[in-house]
């Protein structure tokens, strides 16, 4: 780990908004909330959720009132797959599930 990379988590912890510019992982996810939320989810709700999970969530669109697509970014060092960030988000009681918006292929 470089010295700069080692400082990123601390920096993000102190100033979350700076993490987006220094994201070490980024992926599109489908988040299911424990309760239906408005579409799009309120900015305050998303900001609070992001702060709690120490990630940045950028709303893309809603599939259903309880399924919402976000681009998740996080600055966890050595976690290019966003595994730890996903874990933090999944542990939030407001979140029922977080699935990576996986790419599917035709099966021929």
């Amino acid at each position: 780990m470089t010295g700069r990379a080692a400082l990123v988590p601390l920096f993000c912890f102190l100033a979350l908004t700076a993490c987006a510019a220094r994201a070490d992982c980024s992926l599109q996810v489908i988040v299911s909330f424990s309760q239906d939320v408005q579409s799009p989810p309120g900015a305050t709700f998303v900001k609070d959720l992001s702060r709690a999970a120490r990630v940045e969530l950028n709303y893309v669109r809603s599939v259903t009132p309880s399924l919402h697509v976000f681009v998740l970014e996080a600055a966890d060092a050595d976690d290019p797959g966003c595994g730890r960030a996903l874990g933090r988000l999944r542990s939030d009681p407001r979140v029922r599930s977080v699935d990576i918006d996986a790419r599917r292929q035709p099966q021929a």
Binding site: V63, L67, R96, P106
Partner: peptide, 15 residues
Amino acid sequence: SLGGTGACSAAQQQV
């Protein structure tokens, strides 16, 4: 006629 490896995701099962 499509798919990918892995378990059925919560989002998929919900829909």
